[in-house]
């Protein structure tokens, strides 16, 4: 059995918190640059150029791309043959977040109670999702999530009769009413199926896919394309200034569901679509 010291997890989490906030991933840079070429609206293009310029400044000067460095959402895929030693796994993750947000000069945006709202001062606790998988490796993914785009997310329990068209309309209408709030161009994560809690998770997981990589099932890949086309026909454009590129991509993730249900969820990501992974 492979032993993994949780103190190593702390170090990796700290590093990923910083890197995900400073460095735009290659897929995001590519999506931004392609959009500059495609955008027809002068105001929209100017916004995209500033967004690209900002990515360059953040990377060169090692600064956060966006001041809202988010809640640290941490995904752990732990191999069932790995054995954690040296302390409490979840505590080691929180400690990594604490160190990363302190040492990286990242904003502390977490309150300790949803209604009494006192800032915890160190951006902990993280939101942690752990899954046990075959093997003896541990995959750690950090996806800091800002409030502006997270607030523009939703879950709805449809009757199965709503079907493909019902879901498409739900997503397009939702993106329309979100307007400029989630800092477009956005990445739209859509979950379909499962149960009430599962579908929200599917929408979140959809945001971890490289931007624009289609769903492997042609039926859903086609649906992603159709939704993206309809969203980009809305005219909202970069930053809501009017234009063609309202979203970079739509990603759908699905799961089997109950004969009586058709759950659907939308998790929006802004143009600062942050995530970094490391396999230990």
């Amino acid at each position: 059995m492979r032993e993994i010291d949780v103190r190593d997890i702390t170090k990796i989490v700290a590093r990923l918190c910083i890197e995900s906030n400073y460095f735009a991933t290659d897929d995001l840079v590519k999506a931004t640059e392609e959009s500059i070429l495609k955008e027809e609206s002068p105001a929209g293009r100017a916004a995209l150029e500033k967004i690209r310029e900002n990515q360059k400044i953040a990377a060169a000067e090692e600064l956060a791309i966006c001041q809202d460095t988010g809640v640290a959402v941490v995904f752990i895929e732990a191999g069932q043959d790995a054995h954690f030693i040296g302390g409490d796994l979840e505590q080691s993750i929180h400690e990594g977040v604490r160190q990363g947000y302190r040492d990286g000069y990242l904003r502390k945006s977490v309150v300790e109670d949803p209604l009494r709202r006192k800032n915890t001062g160190d951006n902990t606790p993280a939101v942690i999702h752990i899954r046990i998988v075959p093997g003896d490796k541990v995959k750690i993914t950090i996806a800091p999530k800002g409030g502006g785009s997270e607030n523009m997310s939703t879950v709805k329990m449809f009757a199965p009769s709503a079907g493909r068209e019902g879901i498409i309309k739900f997503v397009v209408d939702w993106v329309k009413q979100a307007g400029a709030n989630p800092c477009p161009p956005t990445v739209v994560g859509v979950g379909i199926g499962g149960t009430f809690e599962k579908v929200a998770m599917l929408a979140k997981m959809a945001l971890l896919r490289p931007i624009g990589q289609p769903n492997p099932d042609p039926f859903y890949a086609d649906m992603e394309k159709e939704i993206l086309q309809k969203i980009n026909a809305l005219g909202i454009g970069p930053q809501g200034f009017g234009g063609r590129i309202t979203s970079f991509a739509v990603h759908i993730e699905t799961h089997p569901c109950h004969i009586a249900s058709l759950p659907a969820a939308i998790n929006m990501n802004c143009h600062v679509s942050r995530h970094q992974s490391f396999i230990l």
Binding site: K50, E53, L63, A64
Partner: peptide, 27 residues
């Protein structure tokens, strides 16, 4: 509107910052 998310770029135009009220509110 300022460009949402263009935070490092915008910071370059800010040459001085000082808290003038409600220090207890942090950011």
């Amino acid at each position: 509107a300022a460009i949402g998310g263009a935070a490092a770029l915008i910071a370059k135009s800010i040459h001085k910052a000082e808290v003038v009220a409600y220090d207890d509110l942090g950011p």
